[in-house]
Amino acid sequence: MPALLRRHLLAVLACAPLALSPLPASAQDGAPVRLLVGYSAGGPVDQGARLFGQALAKELNTAVIVENKPGANATLAGSEVVRAKPDGLTLWFAASPTITISPNVMAKMPFDPARDLTPVAPILSYYNVLVVNNGEPYKNVQELVAHAKAHPGKLAYGSAGVGGSNHLGALLLARRSGIELNHIPYKGNAPAMTDVIGGQLNMMLDIISTASSYIHAGKVRAIAVTSPRRNPSLPDVPTVAESGIDGLKDFDVGGWYGLYGPRELPPEQVARLNRAANAALAQPELKKRLQDLGYELWTGSPQQLAERAARERTLWSTVTQGIVVN
């Protein structure tokens, strides 16, 4: 073999391992993005994640795969994101209770949301609606409070579990209005709603997006929404604050969904994902779909997400004293 050809062949072979070595994947090279959800498929968080994920995929020009990781107050999903490589390919579609309530009530929280995660973008705000069995005599919050005071400890409300937002929202309402209600925890909102419809429970708070169908079908009666303003999807339902009851005049209790990544997610990745999230929420089709479900779109910066999480974590710390979830 001529010397020149031999030297050329050796040079090619020396470079071959480099050519065959896989380059690290990132959120900028078209690799699919995993969007983790801490709840089962079919629930309100999963519903929001799938709608948002479809729109986000268009902005990132790559697949966004929603993965359900239910369990442990949604901390299983959060823990997987905490352990993930900070490459922008593993994100968490987190519901606010896991960020703001769980650290106050879980006996052993597997991670600290404020320390171990990177806020990427706010996504949605949501509020609850107070619904009662159709056979209950009270038609508004004033009548409910009067009835509860006349029958202390006799009214029961359901929730998706101890320490959840609808548990603590109802607890806060009871405390501020000076009434006593019995809490019956369930393993999800759906079975609790079934018992409100059937009369085994007097009432419950449920997310507007999932409660609306029961309300419009006449299966339960809506008394009030927990937002500071009436919700466009339930325009005839007053706010809790409209009751005029001392302690409830500034009642504003809701939740939100936010996008989080691993702790050391590079700033350039955070900025890119934030832009994509805000652009996704601006898509007319997604915007209308979410608003029809009773959600409020919440676009903004990672800092706005972090600040709201910190404020609400402090708020719930005062409400959850004595409540422990194992």
Results as ranks from 00 to 15, higher is better:
A57D: 08
L5A: 14
G218A: 06
G71N: 02
V145G: 10
D292Q: 10
S233P: 08
F52M: 08
P267I: 00
G135Q: 14
K249Y: 08
G48R: 01
V12P: 00
T314V: 12
M106C: 07
N133F: 08
N104F: 08
D29K: 02
G161C: 03
I65Q: 13
R263V: 04
A276M: 01
S209P: 00
L10E: 15
V253M: 09
F111L: 00
K187Y: 14
L248P: 03
E67R: 02
L117T: 04
S21E: 15
E59A: 12
N73V: 12
H8N: 11
L171F: 13
P262Q: 01
I184L: 13
P235C: 05
L56K: 05
E136C: 10
D236A: 15
A72M: 10
L290F: 00
H167F: 06
L144V: 02
G322D: 13
R175P: 10
D246N: 12
H216W: 14
N73Y: 15
L60Y: 09
P44W: 06
L76S: 05
D87V: 04
I65A: 11
E268G: 05
S301P: 04
D292T: 03
T98F: 14
A279C: 04
D252R: 02
A25P: 11
D292F: 00
G42R: 05
G53W: 02
A146F: 02
G153S: 06
A310T: 08
T299Q: 15
V324L: 06
Y186W: 07
V64G: 01
L60E: 11
K219Y: 03
R50Y: 06
E264A: 14
V37A: 07
P103N: 04
A84D: 09
P32T: 03
A190L: 14
R289H: 05
